[in-house]
């Protein structure tokens, strides 16, 4: 599996993401700066990492979603390329319109930085195929704007179409229906606030994230 990781000014999980992807695939990801205008040929997965792109100016993810590289990411996603957005990456994906809804300030105001339990709500995507349906996993979260908001019609549609990939097992940030991660209509785009790339080594104290990256490698090798 060939992957690319986007770096915006203010990204801070881009290298963690690259390490997790290389560990799972054996191939070093291509690092793409936000000013790039093209995704190199043959890329199977684009990762939009966490951080504080553009200092969270205007709204989290707002400036990054209008940067040159995101036009290329949108085109690639429309062609079926897989896209994983984590934390600020999830905010960038909702701001760019690749995923529905928006991420607002946490309902409790506080920045939340801790391990949280999540339920795997859909294990039929390439991102979640190595998890059991309904399994509980633990990923770290670290965000101020993780409160997922969408109107009831959108939420009902997401639930009905199995597009809620992960749900918090407890209230973490006020997210509607405790949604932690959502899939696009074709299931090739996943956005989530928790950090699977921070749970891939024994030294992290938790390896629940490994199966996401291994699953992507297996799934995308099979389709290539």
């Amino acid at each position: 599996m060939k992957s690319a990781v986007i770096t915006f000014p203010g990204s801070n999980c881009d290298r963690d993401m690259a390490v997790a992807l290389e560990q799972a695939s054996g191939v070093k990801p291509v690092m793409l700066w936000h000013r790039e205008t093209e995704i190199p040929a043959g890329i199977d997965l684009i990762a939009v990492p966490g951080g504080f792109s553009y200092g969270d100016y205007l709204r989290s993810g707002a400036m990054a979603s209008r940067s040159p590289i995101m036009a290329a990411v949108k085109e690639a996603a429309a062609r079926g390329t897989y896209v994983l957005g984590v934390c600020n990456g999830f905010q960038v994906l909702t701001e760019s319109g690749l995923l529905p809804g928006a991420l607002m300030r946490n309902a409790g105001i506080h920045f939340v930085c801790r391990d949280v339990a999540l339920t795997v709500e859909n294990n039929q995507s390439a991102f979640t195929s190595l998890y059991q349906q309904g399994e509980q996993v633990v990923f770290p979260v670290a965000h101020h704007d993780g409160n997922y908001v969408a109107d009831d019609a959108v939420l009902d549609r997401l639930e009905g179409e199995g597009r809620v990939a992960f749900r918090y097992a407890e209230s973490v940030n006020g997210s509607a229906r405790n949604i932690a991660g959502v899939l696009s209509d074709k299931s090739n785009v996943l956005g989530m606030m928790p950090h699977p790339e921070r749970a891939v080594e024994a030294a992290h104290g938790n390896v629940d994230g490994v199966r996401m990256f291994k699953g992507l490698v297996e799934g995308l090798m099979a389709t290539a």
Binding site: R59, A62, R66, T94, E95, G101, A102, V149, A150
Partner: peptide
């Protein structure tokens, strides 16, 4: 509509 406001919210 394209940048200054996020019309979802």
């Amino acid at each position: 509509s394209k940048l200054l406001a996020n019309t979802v919210i």
